[in-house]
Amino acid sequence: MDDIWQSLECVHAPVYFAPETVPVYSAAGSGLKGFWMGYFASRAAALGAVAPEVVTAAFYNFAPARVARSIPDAWDRCTPEDVLAARLDVADQALRRLLGELVEGPEVAEAAELGRRAVEALPVAGRVLFAAHAALPVPEHPHLGLWWAATALREFRGDGHVAALVAAGVDGCEANVITVALGLAPTEQRLNRGWSEDEWQDAEERLRERGVLAEDGTLTDAGRLERAAIEATTDRLARPVLGDARLAECLRPLARRIVGAGGVPFPNAMGLPPLRPE
């Protein structure tokens, strides 16, 4: 993974880990219930009040049963518009706390402008989550404009990653098993993503039959090659953004400040690796 994507994820991801999430979403509309309803509703709200099947398809690596416990009930409690406003509030509070004085700095303003240009220049065809988030209004404040851009750009890469997984014949549960086998996601990833023990074991067995997973639960050499090929395809599909050296330069100190302030834990359910040493 190119470090620009690690940086973009670090700018975007505090909305999932910040202590502000649950209280803000609980106060939205008639109250979203618990972390997961807030997560699914806030990330899917750009698509509108969609059915759980749509969320499962777009997010890809969550068990359908986990999604169905939150969607569509969330839309009876809070409109997508109100959820989006609440999510922006979470981003505002979290980034102000994590970035400190940098939140008003020139790196944030420049990265926000570069990010906006990148979003506007990218094609939307085949990138459903990206298209939905890119169509949202750009927030006025630079740190929120940067968060908007980081969100759209990470979903651009994510849409491509889903396409690469589908093309490789790796389903959502199998993708989680592989990430855990690599040590990039915590061992509780099965519970985190809502898969049952039987579903997880079936996925492990399918991966063993295909020569991807060894009996001890680690990836085989063939499995590592397959995973590397999926990541390479993902990065190739995201190449229009990967080449922006100045955006990467502006993002790097911001990502390091966010991580240093505890904004993103490692390992994490996203499978995001730690930032490289300076």
Rank of each mutant, 00 (worst) to 15 (best):
A46N: 04
V54C: 01
V11C: 05
A85S: 13
P23N: 12
W195G: 00
P123L: 07
V55R: 12
T187S: 14
R117S: 06
I4A: 06
P277W: 11
G263A: 05
Q93W: 08
T218A: 15
A255G: 10
M270C: 02
L182N: 08
C10I: 04
R157P: 05
V24H: 03
L84D: 04
W148T: 01
F40N: 09
A203I: 01
E174V: 03
G29A: 11
P123E: 13
V103F: 14
R236I: 04
Q189E: 15
A28P: 14
L146I: 02
L84A: 09
L207Q: 01
L251I: 06
G169D: 05
V15G: 00
R190M: 03
A131I: 09
S42H: 10
F59Q: 13
Y25V: 02
V241D: 07
W195T: 04
A185P: 01
V108C: 06
G217Y: 11
G243I: 01
A149Y: 08
L122Y: 08
L88Q: 14
A222W: 13
L247C: 07
S26R: 12
A46Q: 11
G260Q: 09
Q189A: 11
V212S: 09
L182K: 13
G160Q: 05
P14K: 00
N268S: 03
E53W: 14
N61V: 09
D244V: 04
A41H: 05
L129C: 01
W195E: 10
R96N: 08
L98N: 12
R236D: 15
L272K: 02
V108N: 05
P23I: 00
A51M: 05
Y60K: 06
G31S: 14
A121D: 06
A181M: 00
V170M: 12
A91D: 04
T187D: 15
L114D: 04
D89W: 04
A74P: 03
L102A: 15
E188A: 14
C173K: 07
R116E: 11
L251V: 01
A18G: 10
V212C: 12
A228H: 11
L254V: 07
A65K: 15
D159S: 04
D159G: 02
P137D: 06
L8R: 09
L114V: 00
W147G: 02
N176T: 15
G48A: 03
E205L: 11
Y25I: 01
T234H: 13
E155I: 00
A121Y: 00
E215K: 14
L122G: 10
E53K: 09
T79M: 10
L254Q: 13
A135F: 08
L213F: 02
V11G: 03
V108R: 12
